[in-house]
């Protein structure tokens, strides 16, 4: 952090709790930079998260109001908080498992209602906190603690899901491309209504170890190399596309 992002960190904090090389730390920096660019006052910011490693990105690290809730329910809590105090710029930052599996219903309904929040989904393709179990975002063939021979089920395309449900904006970028990620978060925060940013955020401990490599730079390289543009995606058949991350912005 070259610009002084420390002012956004909570007083009395003693370091974050992420594993070395966890993408969630980079994502946290990206969120703070976007907030910094917009100059949102700390009193006007509310972060809501569920349960999981990703849910620890704002809580307790970010020195604003933070609401660390139940597994899956961040958007439901955010609904009440935001509707009662519409002045709050409300950012829901949580994991892929939290937002799309146990909390999937709240995700689509919040998008349908066009709840005025920005959702940032830290997608590490797995349940990090509970020990690397298969998620609704795990790629076909990826190995997890519950699918050691590879996952058989097709993952959600979360951006597609929220756009189909009524989101005003969605974007997907890996944490390996921080500038694009920051731009996307900034844009999402500027747009009124339900906006969504999926950050592909490698988990060396639970995903990398079982799949490509636990070596951090190699894992980051492999994630980055799987990122393709929408145009590239169109040249691929579905199976091949599903093994990649289509990055970019999705607008209605």
């Amino acid at each position: 952090m070259t610009r002084d992002m420390n002012k956004y960190l909570r007083e009395g904090l003693s370091g974050t709790r992420f594993c070395p090389g966890c993408g969630h730390g980079i994502l946290m920096g990206a969120i703070l930079r976007a907030v910094d660019r917009l100059g949102i006052a700390m009193e006007d910011l509310l972060f809501v998260s569920g349960i999981g490693c990703a849910a620890w990105i704002p809580s307790p690290n970010i020195g604003t109001d933070t609401l660390h809730t139940l597994h899956g329910r961040a958007l439901a809590f955010a609904t009440g908080a935001k509707l009662v105090n519409p002045k709050l710029t409300t950012i829901v930052a949580s994991g892929d498992g939290d937002l799309t599996s146990i909390g999937g219903n709240h995700l689509i309904h919040s998008a349908r209602r066009n709840l005025d929040v920005t959702v940032i989904c830290a997608n590490n393709l797995i349940y990090g906190m509970t020990g690397g179990q298969t998620a609704s975002t795990t790629p076909v063939g990826a190995r997890t603690s519950t699918d050691p021979d590879g996952n058989n089920f097709r993952p959600f395309d979360i951006c597609n899901l929220v756009m189909a449900s009524g989101a005003r904006y969605a974007a997907r970028f890996p944490v390996t491309r921080p500038n694009q990620l920051i731009d996307a978060i900034e844009k999402a925060l500027r747009i009124k209504g339900f906006t969504f940013v999926e950050a592909v955020s490698p988990c060396p401990t639970q995903f990398g170890r079982r799949n490509s490599t636990a070596e951090i730079s190699a894992l980051y390289d492999s994630v980055d190399s799987l990122c393709i543009s929408k145009a590239e995606a169109q040249t691929m058949d579905e199976d091949e596309r599903l093994r990649h991350f289509v990055v970019g912005e999705f607008e209605p």
């Binding site: 609401l67 958007l75 009440g80 935001k82």
Partner: peptide
């Protein structure tokens, strides 16, 4: 503020969030 939520899980959670916003 009245809101019909998508289920009871969401209802009670929204109520908690609303309470923390002061209502």
């Amino acid at each position: 503020v009245f809101i019909q939520m998508e289920d009871e899980l969401a209802s009670i959670c929204a109520v908690i969030g609303a309470s923390w916003s002061g209502a």
